[in-house]
Every structure is written in C-alpha cells, then in structure tokens.
Simulated assay, not measured.
Amino acid sequence: MNVELVLFGAFALLTLLSAGLVILARSPINSAMALVSTFFFLAGIYVLLWAHTVAVVQVLVYAGAIMVLFLFVIMLLNLGESAHRGKPTLSRILGGASAVGLLGVLGITLSRVPAQPANLGPQAQATFGTMASIGQSIFTQWLLPFEAVSLLLLVAMVGAVVVAKSRI
C-alpha cells in the first residue's frame, strides 16, 4: 500500500461524504458549502491522477466562479432556511428512482470498461492535458456545447434575478 492509494481513498471517502451532505443539508447555503468542499476533494483526486490542469480548472471555475454564482442566486432568492422536509411527493419519488436508475447505468458502464488502460504514443503523451490541447479541443470539437452551457448559465442567472425582483 502506497501513499497515493491512501490519499486516493481519503479523497474519495471525503468526496462521497461531502456529496452526501449536499443532498442531506437542510439549508441551501450549507448545501452549497458542502458542494464547494466536494469540488476541492475532486481537485485532489485529479492531482493524484496527474491531471493538474483539470484540478486547477476545477478549483478556479467550479469552486470559484460557479459556486459564487450559486450563492448569489441563493441569497438573491432569500432561500436561507426555507428548505423544508415534508412527506414524499411524486416528484421526490421520481427523483429518487431516477437517481437509482442512473446509479445502475453507471455500474453497468463501469463493468464494461476494459481492465487495461489504453497506451498513448509518445507524441500523444507529450501533448495530453496541456492547455493548448484542451483549448484546441474546446474551441473546435466542443464549441457548440461550450457556448450552450455558457448561455444556459446566463439564462439561469437572469431568471433568478427576474424571480427575485418580483419579491422585492
């Protein structure tokens, strides 16, 4: 047993615990803070996988910018302690069933992954994960989904402001 395996286990356990807190927290603000810790633990796992660029992007974009946006919307909508636990409704039952179904699909997919990792050639290893290759991929192959996500975040923020404006 080496240090990397112990750290991976610790980060994985802490990621699962903080993700559970995201779901189980009574306050939306506490849930958002647990999500921030989940992002940081995921960044630690990325560092252990030698994906330093992804780890930095995880911390800067998700733990930084996206969570600031989430907290802004939570505070703007005044959702501080308004979350309540009530009886099971149809939407909660369907949500739970969807989560279990997604977990099943994930399990089936992971069982079909080959045990041996793919071997990259020397040229691919030299450019894999660099900012240039990630930028090339985002702005060529994945440009439309990238812009769609940015538009979706903008619409969500404008929608939150419109909903909050009617309450003020």
Rank of each mutant, 00 (worst) to 15 (best):
L35Y: 01
P122R: 09
V100L: 13
F41A: 01
V161T: 09
F40T: 01
P117G: 03
V57Q: 06
H52N: 15
M1G: 01
A99E: 02
A148L: 15
Q123R: 01
A63Q: 08
G86T: 06
S150W: 08
L71S: 07
G80I: 04
L48I: 05
L49F: 14
L153M: 15
R26Y: 09
A65H: 02
N30E: 05
A63T: 06
V161H: 05
P145Q: 07
L110G: 08
T127H: 08
P117A: 07
F70K: 01
A43L: 05
R112L: 11
Y62E: 00
L69Y: 03
I74F: 03
L5V: 07
L21R: 11
L152Q: 12
M1F: 00
P28V: 05
P145D: 09
T140V: 07
L17Y: 14
F41N: 13
V105K: 07
T38W: 02
V158E: 03
F39L: 14
A55R: 03
L17F: 05
T140M: 10
I66N: 04
G159D: 02
V61C: 08
F40P: 01
T89R: 11
F39S: 12
P88G: 10
I23L: 12
A126W: 10
G64R: 04
A34K: 04
A65S: 07
A148G: 12
E147G: 08
F39W: 13
L110K: 13
V155Q: 07
L48N: 03
A55V: 11
L103G: 10
E4Y: 14
N119F: 14
V57D: 01
G107S: 04
A63M: 00
V57W: 05
A148C: 10
P122K: 14
L14S: 10
L90K: 13
T109P: 06
A32S: 12
G9P: 03
R112P: 01
L35C: 03
L152F: 14
G121N: 15
G44P: 03
T38Y: 02
L106V: 05
F70L: 11
F128W: 12
S31I: 00
F72H: 07
G86Q: 04
P28Y: 08
